[in-house]
Amino acid sequence: MKTIQSAYRLAPWRKQVQNILNVIIVLVFIASVTMIYLYSSAQMTKMKLEIQKLHEERSNLTRMIADYLTREGQITSFDEMEKRSQQAGYIPIDMNDEETYTYLPIAGFREDNYSGLDNVPRNLSIPVSIVKPEYTESLQRWLKEHVSIKKRGE
């Protein structure tokens, strides 16, 4: 009588274990990707909120700078200065009496067109760091742009 024997390259239990492990590896991989994705998303959201907060602060600072400059302008306005000088006991000089003021010649001095401009405050702009493109562009777009640059280079 002819005996039929089953021959396996791997024992069935081994194969089952292998399959389970494969599924676990895939699950772990998916979980890892998900975790990385969630982590980066959370970081990104945090960063975006931070940007919004900084922007708000920047707007406040800009408003405050403008306001303080104007308050300074108000305090040093002609009427205010005149009022304060009178309170301090100063009196206007008699312009008809030329002895009250005099001129001294300074050899070589010539008033240029730029005189007085140093007193004017320059525009104050708070620098803003722009988000670098690598944080905003997709891999696909990056490849597309770099490939097209290379092609143009050729």
Partner: peptide, 10 residues
């Protein structure tokens, strides 16, 4: 002379 004539206020 650098005196403010027109500015912005909050």
């Amino acid at each position: 002379q650098g005196y403010l004539l027109a500015g912005n206020s909050v």
